[in-house]
């Protein structure tokens, strides 16, 4: 199994992600330049965190027009696995591969801190190595992570188990305080209807080694390995 990590101008978690995939998970990982037209045989494409195009216009709004994103769209439409982390999640929303949009955090502050999220659905290809209700500790680092979607979309994603992670307190309880950015339904991660595309605001790559303070993020990458193997 091979990963591909897309690099946009302004990506800044690209090499952290490559490190986690190559050195921690131990899988070959291609670095994919946003101007290329080739996914180089990747079984899973990761859009990393950062500030693609300086967050100009809206977070993720310009990156969606990158040449490689047309390949990523086709790959996703054929069922290929796509993971968007933080800015990568914002790009997937702008691209329309996931529903909804991100608003500025409720407290108007850039939030850079560890949070806890609860696994809402352990049946996805991104969480099958975890268990429902499991609390994962991972860092967030974003200004625009306040998830918004209209009521019909929220009802659809709730009903179909597409909410993968919700912000929670360390005991797994959903509280206003734990929902640090004000996301509707405390959504921290969700999939598309087909289940092959996921966006998440927390950074699993920054929580993949003990020296970083948590290894909980490995569950996401290990789930992908299982999904590909089966």
């Amino acid at each position: 199994m091979k990963f591909g990590v897309v690099v946009f101008p302004g990506s800044n978690c690209d090499f952290d992600t490559v490190h986690a995939l190559r050195e921690v998970i131990g899988r070959p990982t291609e670095i994919l330049w946003h101007k290329d037209h080739d996914l180089r045989g990747a079984d899973c494409v990761v859009l990393p965190g950062g500030f693609s195009y300086g967050d100009y216009l809206r977070s993720g709004a310009i990156a969606r027009f990158s040449p490689l994103m047309q390949e990523v769209r086709e790959f996703a439409e054929k069922g290929g696995l796509v993971l968007g982390i933080c800015n990568g999640f914002q790009v997937l929303l702008e691209l329309g591969l996931l529903p909804g949009a991100m608003l500025r955090n409720k407290g108007l502050k850039f939030l850079c801190r560890f949070v806890t999220v609860r696994v809402e659905n352990a049946g996805t290809r991104f969480t099958n190595a975890g268990r429902k209700g499991q609390v994962l500790r991972m860092p967030i680092a974003h200004f625009d992570g306040n998830y918004y979607a209209d009521p019909a979309v929220l009802e659809d994603i709730e009903r179909n188990g597409r909410i993968v992670f919700r912000y929670c307190d360390p005991d797994g309880r959903l509280t206003d305080e734990a929902n640090v950015n004000g996301s509707l339904h405390a959504i921290a991660g969700l999939t598309n209807a087909r289940g092959n595309v996921m966006g998440m605001m927390p950074h699993p790559e920054r929580a993949s080694e003990a020296i970083l303070g948590s290894t909980d993020g490995r569950i996401v990458f290990e789930s992908l390995l299982r999904a590909i193997a089966s």
Binding site: L57, A61, E94, A101, A149, D150
Partner: peptide, 8 residues
């Protein structure tokens, strides 16, 4: 298409 995100 570009300047506004019609969702929000």
């Amino acid at each position: 298409k570009v300047l506004a995100n019609p969702i929000i």
